[in-house]
């Protein structure tokens, strides 16, 4: 049996290599479609709001996950937020060192219960702090495709439009 046939030569165990040869195309769904169209066309964020539970969703959902009510009113909530939490990343996916550290943060969108995970741009690791106000920085309109990377990141709040 297996246990009595001990492996004495560690070079001996053999293996079979392979991979799973599929790729995916995801639709955004009803709420996702509205959310990313607003980013692409208007450079702003949309939310849905459940009045029964007094909770708002960014990115929006077509239902309240607490009470299951249908949500179909979309509210423009602007692009400002606060840093809820952050991490400073020094490593690449393959374990090599990044040229410059990158900050990834969870940003709570102002006036909502929702938020986004995204990069922080224009604020150094020494300056960043929890609760710091930030604002989304978008790619130029012509280059936006309706995807999460239409947002370059979140940077310091500038005056002017919310």
């Amino acid at each position: 049996m297996a246990i009595t046939e001990k492996i004495t030569n560690t070079m001996k165990p053999t293996f079979w290599e392979g991979h799973i040869p599929v790729n995916y195309v995801y639709t955004y769904g009803h709420a996702g479609e509205k959310f990313f169209r607003a980013i692409k066309d208007k450079g702003t964020f949309l939310a849905t709001y459940c009045s029964a539970c007094d909770i708002s969703y960014v990115p929006p959902k077509i239902y309240c996950d607490r009470c299951f009510t249908k949500l179909d009113r979309y509210i423009d909530v602007g692009t400002r937020g606060f840093i809820e939490t952050f991490t400073v990343s020094f490593m690449n996916m393959d374990g090599s060192r990044k040229e410059r550290p990158r900050i990834l943060a969870m940003i709570r969108i102002v006036g909502t219960d929702g938020g986004l995970i995204h990069y922080i741009e224009g604020i150094g690791p020494d300056e960043i702090a929890l609760g710091m106000p930030v604002q989304a920085v978008f790619k130029p309109k012509g280059k936006r495709t309706g995807a999460i990377d239409d947002i370059i990141g979140f940077g310091p709040v500038t005056r002017g439009r919310k």
Partner: peptide, 26 residues
């Protein structure tokens, strides 16, 4: 007409043959 995003998983595996299948292949 609708927005989509795509993903190509880049996962490769090395499955150990184990004792029985190792001998079978040998």
């Amino acid at each position: 007409n609708v927005l989509t995003t795509s993903w190509e998983p880049n996962l490769a595996y090395a499955w150990d043959d184990g004792v029985a299948i190792g001998r079978y292949l040998a």
